[in-house]
Amino acid sequence: MKTNSLGLPQEEIQVLIKDLNILLANFQVYYQNLRGLHWNIRGKRFFDLHLKFEELYTDAQLKIDLIAERILTLGGTPLHTFEDYIKNAKINVGKDISVDEMAITLVVNSLVELLKIERTILRQSGEIDDEGTNAMVSDFIVEQEKTIWMMKAWLGETI
């Protein structure tokens, strides 16, 4: 088995880079959705949600950078065009959403899709002992599961 300078198998790393780029693309769509929600939210919950969406998009922006840097660390090239993001997006684009419940539902649905991608990556990185990717994605999952729980509680729903 041929390994790279990090001691990771080159063939499996290429698959992992591809999936990390899919995660990157979906995070970019999620980020842009959050910006739109932040700008367009209306109603009696405006102040709370305006701040919450800013908190979430700031966090997403940091995660986008971590994902891109991990791709580079593994020897890949991060996707960086809107064309690539849309082509690889599994997350729905939220357009002109200003109603609180619709906004929160979009966030929950987006996080659910991110979790699916992340769990695939977590399995792959675990199989090849890629602790760097594993730790990063594991941290994402823990935070996103909690956010889903909180958002569903806000909607009056259970997990």
Results as ranks from 00 to 15, higher is better:
M1C: 10
K2C: 07
K2M: 11
T3M: 10
L6Q: 12
L6G: 06
L8I: 02
L8P: 02
P9Y: 06
Q10V: 13
E11H: 08
E12T: 08
Q14K: 14
Q14W: 05
L16G: 00
L16V: 05
I17T: 01
K18C: 04
L20C: 03
N21G: 02
L24E: 03
A25Q: 01
A25S: 06
A25P: 00
Q28S: 09
V29N: 03
Y31V: 02
Y31N: 06
N33S: 02
N33T: 02
L34G: 05
G36T: 04
G36M: 03
W39S: 08
W39N: 07
W39H: 09
N40A: 08
N40D: 10
N40Y: 09
I41P: 00
I41V: 13
G43Q: 06
G43P: 06
K44T: 09
R45G: 07
F46E: 09
F46S: 11
F47Y: 12
F47T: 06
D48C: 02
L51V: 12
F53I: 01
L56F: 09
Y57I: 03
T58F: 07
D59K: 12
A60L: 06
L62D: 12
L62W: 06
D65P: 10
L66G: 09
A68F: 05
I71W: 01
L72D: 04
T73Q: 12
L74V: 01
G75V: 01
L79S: 07
H80F: 08
T81R: 07
T81A: 05
F82M: 15
E83G: 07
D84H: 13
I86F: 10
K87D: 14
N88L: 15
A89T: 11
N92D: 15
G94K: 14
D96Y: 14
I97M: 14
S98P: 10
V99P: 05
V99L: 15
D100G: 08
M102Y: 13
A103V: 08
A103E: 05
V107F: 07
V107C: 05
N109I: 06
N109L: 13
N109Q: 15
S110C: 07
L111I: 10
E113M: 11
E113V: 14
E113L: 12
L114I: 05
L114H: 03
L115R: 06
L115A: 03
K116F: 06
E118C: 05
R119E: 15
T120N: 14
L122Q: 12
S125P: 02
S125G: 03
G126N: 13
E127A: 10
I128V: 13
D129I: 04
E131F: 15
E131T: 14
T133C: 03
T133E: 02
A135F: 11
A135V: 10
M136S: 04
V137N: 03
S138Q: 04
F140S: 00
V142S: 09
Q144D: 14
K146R: 13
I148Q: 00
I148W: 03
W149Y: 04
M151D: 11
K152A: 04
K152Y: 09
A153L: 09
W154Y: 15
W154T: 10
W154C: 07
G156F: 11
G156V: 11
G156Y: 09
G156D: 08
